[in-house]
């Protein structure tokens, strides 16, 4: 069994109230990805190298400005985990050969969007897990190629309207289950988080920090321009994603998946969908009940399955 210490983060008051990540970045107003990142960074701290793949957050560091107190390396869209491999291995060599003292060691963190994580970068991610690379992987998932104007990606949910799925039924495909794909590699840790559940997020990053090997995090990132909602709704929509069960908060460790927050009374998915312009065609000009029910059923099926396995565990 993996030893995990008791958490420092029990309630919101335990969260840092001054933030390490610098302000002044060009991320959009109300960005759910940036919200998650600044919370993650508060826990990881500045003894870190962020290895970035092409995405919205490539623009965090634009010469001569960076919001990071620690380090950063931009690689390319496909291969950030391979970049992490190089940095990790080189640091290990330097440590082994005593060319740097132990206090110069750093956490190597991959930072990518869903476009890279679910698609082009998946092969490099798989390889890094297979090699048991000691790194953290943070995917900010805004469910589309946001930086190019929100075309559908492997992370786009069923029926969402994107710049390349403008038809009356939206995106015909289904969001890829990246959590399970990652978990199938049996890495040290896999978790889903969201910036609107900051205590859950902080605990998971804390736990990930305490482990060795590949530690994989997906943060759902409500995206005002990409999902088409007013920036001030950003947190509310994230909370609805959790309450409706659309975004399950869970973790994988030692071969077991645990749900860290089970919505006691799940609200209908409709309450989540109707706040977002990308789903407006489900409600106007008339309600597409069939499609809404289909989405609801997927969510219900998921949680039914969770219930079954949870009760089995108890037996």
């Amino acid at each position: 069994m993996t030893e995990v210490k008791a958490t420092f983060y029990r309630r919101m008051k335990d969260l840092p109230s001054t933030h390490l990540l610098g302000t002044g970045t060009p991320m959009c107003s109300g960005c759910g990805g940036l919200e998650a990142l600044h919370q993650v960074y508060d826990v990881i701290g500045e003894k870190s190298v962020f290895v970035n793949a092409a995405g919205c957050m490539t623009l965090l560091s634009v010469y001569p400005f960076t919001p990071f107190r620690g380090s950063w390396l931009y690689t390319a869209m496909a291969s950030a985990p391979a970049g992490a491999q190089g940095v990790r291995d080189a640091l290990d060599i330097l440590l082994e050969k005593k060319r740097i003292p132990p206090e110069e060691n750093m956490e190597v963190v991959v930072l990518t969007g869903d476009g890279s994580a679910y698609g082009m970068g998946l092969s490099a991610t798989s390889g890094a897990m297979e090699r048991n690379l000691d790194f953290l992987y943070i995917c900010y998932d805004n469910e589309g190629y946001g930086n190019t104007g929100q075309q559908y990606s492997g992370a786009t949910p069923h029926a969402a309207k994107t710049a390349t799925s403008k038809g009356p039924l939206g995106f015909p495909g289904f969001k890829k289950d990246l959590f399970s794909i990652w978990a199938a590699h049996k890495p040290a840790y896999v978790a889903t988080v969201i910036g609107t559940e900051p205590v859950d997020l902080a605990r998971k990053i804390e736990k990930a920090r305490s482990l060795k090997g590949p530690r994989m995090i997906i943060a759902l990132a409500p995206c005002p321009p990409g999902w088409d909602f007013d920036p001030k709704e950003s947190v509310e929509i994230g909370k609805l994603a959790v309450k409706s069960g659309v975004w399950p908060l869970k973790e994988y460790i030692d071969g077991k998946v645990t749900h860290t927050k089970i919505p006691r009374q799940r609200i209908p998915v409709e309450d989540y969908l109707k706040h977002q312009g990308r789903f407006a065609h489900l409600f106007e000009p008339q309600c597409n009940d069939a499609l809404i029910n289909e989405i609801q059923k997927k969510v219900d099926d998921y949680w039914d399955e969770v219930q079954k396995t949870t009760s089995l565990d108890k037996e």
Binding site: T25, S61, T66
Partner: peptide, 18 residues
């Protein structure tokens, strides 16, 4: 080389103007 040796100097960008 295109490297930044400063830390968190993005605070010099006044995004409050948005």
């Amino acid at each position: 080389a295109p490297s930044i040796h400063a830390a968190a100097n993005s605070v010099q960008v006044k995004t409050g103007l948005w």
